[in-house]
Design a protein around this nucleic acid. Sequence first.
DNA 1: TTATTTCCTGACCATTTGGTCAAGTTACGC
DNA 2: GCGTAACTTGACCAAATGGTCAGGAAATAA
Lengths: 212, 212
Amino acid sequence: MSPRAGQTKKRTRIQAINEEKIVEAALEIFATFGFRGTTIDQIAQKAEMSKPNLLYYFRRKEDIYISVLRRTLEEWLTPLTALNPKGDPLEEISKYTALKLEMSRKNPTASRLFANEILHGAPMIEDVLKGSLKQLVDEKAAVIRNWVREGKLAQVDPYHLIFMIWATTQHYADFKVQMRAILGETVDAPDYYEQAGTTISAIFLEGLKPRG
Amino acid sequence: MSPRAGQTKKRTRIQAINEEKIVEAALEIFATFGFRGTTIDQIAQKAEMSKPNLLYYFRRKEDIYISVLRRTLEEWLTPLTALNPKGDPLEEISKYTALKLEMSRKNPTASRLFANEILHGAPMIEDVLKGSLKQLVDEKAAVIRNWVREGKLAQVDPYHLIFMIWATTQHYADFKVQMRAILGETVDAPDYYEQAGTTISAIFLEGLKPRG
DNA sequence: TTATTTCCTGACCATTTGGTCAAGTTACGC
DNA sequence: GCGTAACTTGACCAAATGGTCAGGAAATAA
């Protein structure tokens, strides 16, 4: 019988290994070529197995894609959960921004996969976006709104602030090709993301106005 | 004889009309489905002509894509050229940011097309990125660097600042689906981009630190 | 009007690709 | 070791799709 990946039946040893190999291979291919641009053969080759064998674990191309997406999305949201209402506002936001930037550095592929899906209208994960994502963001937006109310932050809209942090940090994964075209190999140097962090942090905290 | 779109031969009246129709239709389809995800038939249908007829004007799918991309890219870069070295720094940057945000509002399709191309490694426009784009950005980065040196701006890296402005403003086109999932129809209300502009502007100028 | 160039189309083709299947092979519980 | 369930594969299929082509229709120059 076919194993029906995703369902929680007894997963055999080989099943666990192969599903992992497939999903890992698929992440990179999908992120590079998009859903339509990816062929099952490509994934199979990267995962070092035959196409029919891959299809034994995931009946449809779409199943692989969704599997990869959900895993990625979960990982992608984790940093926001760590935003602590009891912590120091500026410090919490700084930490969150740094964490997101670090993720763009360490796992740009995941960011690109996600960006690609959103860009094309998020047909496969609309429910997650309107569900757990919305819930989490609403919750954290309320936290930020409180901080503003208490005078611990400048008067800003919490949602737009969150979007701005996402945009800024994910840009370093999604648009790295453009950055490399402009800056050359600099973008691959070890201190590039450090500089980015410094600049981003400075602007978020102090703004562009010069201070005496 | 085939008309060879893009070359400057005598373009007949009908040729001009149809090429325009094709490119316009293609922009939307490509932005939504990506290069591989788009079929010539889709474009032909949207442009209200038969597939062979479309292929009479553009011999290959790739030709249409490149044509659309170059036109978009050009339009996309224009605002940066307006950054005036003699103007007031904070005001110039504010104006630039507002202009980019306005473009995201008015022409999100173009932004998404461009984002998609970069995301997939910019295989078709690498030369433009490393050429005219780089040149323009280098030039404007020097302007910003001067402003910083003269103490008219806080100490920030000009390139990272430019990237941050791009990221923030384009996010409102590229990730609008995500925003809509979180905020609902709010994002389609007339004052949504106004709020965005206010928040972005506030943060870029003043930062998040509360002021007495 | 007529000749010629441009424009347009239905029919067609080759390739790619998602997905199936029958039949073998391997792993594993007993 | 043995039987069964899990795993693997080559061969195959149907649909989708990029692109061609011969010939007809329309525009336009003479």
